[in-house]
Write a protein that binds this DNA or RNA. Sequence first.
DNA 1: CTGTTAGCGCATTCAT
DNA 2: ATGAATGCGCTAACAG
Lengths: 363, 363
Amino acid sequence: MKPKVTIEDIARLAGVSKATVSRVLNERSNVKAETRERVLRVMQEQGFVPSLAAAGLAGGRSRLVGVLTPPLTQPTIPEILRGVAEAIEHTDYEIVLYSTNASQNPTTIVNRILALGLTSCLLVIQPGPLTSRLQQLASQGLPVVVIDDQGSLPDLPSVGIDNRVSAYQATMHLIRLGYRRIAHLQGPDEFRCAQERYQGYQQALADAGLPLDPALVFSGTFETSSGRSCAATLASLSPTERPDAIFIANDQMAYGFLSAAEALGLRIPQDIAVVGFDDIPLSAHVRPPLTTIKQPFYEMGRNAVELLLSLLHAQWSQPASSTEGGHQPPIRIQLPTRLVMRASCGALTAHRRQEEEPSFSDD
Amino acid sequence: MKPKVTIEDIARLAGVSKATVSRVLNERSNVKAETRERVLRVMQEQGFVPSLAAAGLAGGRSRLVGVLTPPLTQPTIPEILRGVAEAIEHTDYEIVLYSTNASQNPTTIVNRILALGLTSCLLVIQPGPLTSRLQQLASQGLPVVVIDDQGSLPDLPSVGIDNRVSAYQATMHLIRLGYRRIAHLQGPDEFRCAQERYQGYQQALADAGLPLDPALVFSGTFETSSGRSCAATLASLSPTERPDAIFIANDQMAYGFLSAAEALGLRIPQDIAVVGFDDIPLSAHVRPPLTTIKQPFYEMGRNAVELLLSLLHAQWSQPASSTEGGHQPPIRIQLPTRLVMRASCGALTAHRRQEEEPSFSDD
DNA sequence: CTGTTAGCGCATTCAT
DNA sequence: ATGAATGCGCTAACAG
């Protein structure tokens, strides 16, 4: 079908041995400059591209990175993957995509991935239930990097954000706007990020000398429905009992809150100001547009790839580093977040800025 | 690091030759039932999974499907990819993801993909500029399937929708609601789907005995800004000149229209009813929620994979089918679309249904 | 039905 | 600095 150009062809045409061609490909050992150029030229002419499959097999070092993701329709994922793809683009690696749907056991998948022997390293988004398995693999020497946009922060190389500080900023923003009775809708306790965001909320109140009213702290599931029931609860309170603002631990719940609030006659932000967390694409387009903490998803993807590749290369350099965990201190890349101000927090009620008009990006 | 279990191990433990093990793996030739079971058992015990890389190399038939996509942040893509991933899931193939960003020449990428020799077939979403290159490859025998959510309908195996019929439905829906002066905002002429949608619009008017007023047909770019300028134009018309409804060729432009209309004081749907095309996730959440034609993106992904794999297997079965194009009739899978009624078309103004309330899905 | 023999395209020892 | 030989893990002809 397609007469693939092989190293052998190049070798013949350039009048050298296959080994030499391989040498100029991998730039490892020394090749006389003149020879190298000749080989390179022939490769150019023939449009030669080495077979990743064969190279991986022979060298034992596959240049495929496995990327394990939740369903791509989860709103945070595409932007992360865009960062991953862009970072990979600049390397000679390729992405093997393993997109899991909820119905399958992730551990099984991981095992299958590894057994296939295709990929030599793994990038995992939202590790969730398979954290322990990943830790085991990592300690056995498999380069693994975790992107924890949910902030699970396992004992693994990871990139993510500082949830505590970010939540602090969100809460403090409300405080600065003059709100005093500030509620919080938490994520589920199992998520470390939920705890951290709660801590940030607490800390902000404390620093501002505001009391922490347990009656104003609601527990949610990170899903839309939690937002709705929270809104219902607040709507049933008398205006004096009711908080004047709320920090909601993720945008998804905030959507539910907004939508239910509207139906229940609670005006946002006049009756209750809202700040969310994540800044997924929809957040700019709900009514009112949601003030929220922007997670740098794209950058998380990029950084994760860079970290993963550096781990991989480090492993290739140091051949016999203890088969069992060399127990390197787990690397953590923490990216800055940013408060995105929109209408839901009430900051723009006085003087709306054009930038914050509901407009849709042109792509 | 990880002592991979090889065929050789299995062969030794099961007391057979490597070839036999390979045979039970590929289920091609006959193996005595007893032997097969023994081998299978050993494989189970050892947790053996054959190396895709090696199998591909040796057999010349890689089980990796290359998937070429625009940036994942384009709103139609994640849902398509979800379908692709799910379909692949059920097979023993894996996905190699090539996500392109606008800045790179897609033809170069395609060449690189093929040269790598990793993948033996290609799934292309939104082929756009590289259609001719793909056709060439396909005629050389490379299994290629195109998902044309933009409806470019090349001379290649493809899955998509019937844009003409769908546009007809959209327009006819407005007509049935009683609108008589119905405008259309077109996509760019280069896109075949834009033409087809325009034809559907025309046909609907004709069938209803309504005149086609060229002054009510606007040309756009499929981007948000087109929607905005179109809205501006309509706002400048006197109420009698102004159309009472508009069919917009994609949702993206409809967003611009909605957003600008609001700013300009045009009420949707009271002043102008709007129907879009695509039904991307945002469409349920803009104000007012957008009535639109739903493209079955998920199913498109699934069907594309199935078609691609069937092509691939067909090729493996018929060994020497003309190196040059056997010129099979280009297969086309056409999936049904569906009109999703929301508020922007005015159909719900009288009796709103709960289903159409702005609510957010719980996932 | 099953074992034996060759490679797939490349990286990596050895030699020279 | 370069060539020759060996093998990665597997499939695909061959033989028997």
